[in-house]
Design a binder for these strands. Structure first.
Lengths: 115, 115
DNA sequence: TCTTGACCTGGAGCGCGCTCCAGATCCGAG
DNA sequence: CTCGGATCTGGAGCGCGCTCCAGGTCAAGA
């Protein structure tokens, strides 16, 4: 299977090498397989996971949340636990959207006022 | 005019006394009028501003952004500058909403999968 | 008047999420 | 074989947004 060097992985994901290592240390991705010499080799699947993590980070979820997320999807938790966890996260995101809409309304009001 | 003590203001706004002082230091609110003895007296208008700041903070705007916001609304900038600034912030918020929707889609997918 | 608690200031401390650094190792090109 | 660039590790540093603390002042009730 073809793999990516750290630099290539960083390039592909838009995440810095340092951050990739940080995510790995925190258990958000990987563990990444190593070459004989100890260098990381990122698989397509690893890259996919980085994408997931990035998606949630951009949505404002914290590292701790993501640890929970990863643990939940990996470990042998009953499906209902997973669903409960996922729904909880969804609620958090919904509340964020609501907060954003409130702020946008205020902005629109001001924009109207000054236009 | 009736005013609020720091404790009452904190209670009304849901923002800690320390944070109220912090916001004032940063120029996001106030300056708050003082009593003869040097204690802060928050007016209804001050409370309103705290609400605005809180609204934008909850939407994820940073302190620096809010400084710009406050400066823009207070100072004598031409209306078109204000509108441009406000529209820019709106774009940022729109992008955040988009990021949230992406993340929520992923969650929905997983929730579906485990349901 | 004395006590007590709210408030003052300036500055230190903290958790988060990276980001950077030193010093060592690996490895492909020449 | 040598050189240099990419990578390795552990740990320090940083910007943000508070949060807490010490040491002092103010003011209302007993």
């Amino acid at each position: 299977m073809t793999t990516l060097t750290p630099a290539a992985a960083a390039d592909r994901t838009g995440v810095s090498i340092d951050t990739l290592r940080y995510y790995e240390r925190e258990g958000l991705i990987g563990p990444i397989r190593r070459s004989a010499g100890g260098r990381r080799e990122y698989t397509e699947n690893d890259i996919f996971w980085v994408g997931l993590v990035t998606c949630f980070r951009e949505a404002g979820l914290g590292i701790a949340d993501l640890k929970g997320f990863v643990a939940m999807l990996r470990a042998e938790h009953p499906p209902q636990d997973r669903v409960a966890f996922l729904r909880e996260r969804r609620t958090v995101l919904e509340q964020r959207v609501a907060a954003l809409h409130r702020a946008m309304e205020v902005l629109d009001e001001k924009i109207d006022y000054y236009s």
